[in-house]
Amino acid sequence: MEGVWTLLSFGPEGWGDNIAKGVLLTVTLALATLPLGLAIGFFVALGKRSNDKALRLAANIYTTIFRGLPELLTLFLVFYGAQIGLQKLVHLFNPDANIEINAFVAGMVALGAVFSSYASEVFLAAFRAIPDGQYEGGHAIGLSNGQTMRLVILPQLIRLALPGLSNLWLILLKDTALVSVIGLTDILRQTGIAARVTKEAFLFYGIACLLYLVLAMLSSIALGAIERRTKRHGVQR
């Protein structure tokens, strides 16, 4: 038992500090992906409920692709594909340039694309739950389209979309584990290195699982608090 605590301690013999860095990277990646995914998801949802056929089609193609591809494949497509694509583009101007895609950015883009395609469906469902009377009421008191969206629709939309988005956040947190494959030192990568060096695979992968569980629990608590806050001055439907 003492050996276990040494292995997990912070310091030269222990892996505690390495794993803590991994946790930090996982959380940073998820937090950095969130605003990207939310923003794209919102605009894709707007596109899907547009009156214009072309815009609806363009938005639906986006969701079909990123919901249909395995997350791991999306990650590889972004990581290798963007590298090759950018390299070719740069070679047109400067044949000697060498481009390396940052793994963190690739992870952010891939996870953001997946997150946003699911988020757009959540936003779409929330849009549908807001009655037309809200738009008409906004217009009746002389608000422009943009003002109606910002002042009337958005506050209600957030409240309606929050449960679905909370779920997506938990999925995002788990999906970040995939970036360990393209070399980012997240929780799973750090514990994997520790497992290989110390030959204590079960211990370290068990700890990885527990850390993800703790992150999920902390998220649930925080999301629950946010949900209660938004419900405070909401109409009961």
């Binding site: 938990l170 788990k174 999906d175 970040t176 584990a177 995939l178 360990s180 799973l188 994997g192 497992a195 030959k199 204590e200 695979a201 079960f202 211990l203 992968y205 068990g206 990885a208 699982c209 993800y212 569980l213 999920a216 629990m217």
Partner: peptide, 21 residues
């Protein structure tokens, strides 16, 4: 809660590499 709260990749590693212990 355990199986829904942890990544499938971590579970797979836990079983494939971990049970080797």
């Amino acid at each position: 809660y355990f199986f829904r709260g942890t990544p499938l990749l971590a579970q797979t590693f836990l079983i494939y590499y971990g049970l080797g212990s």
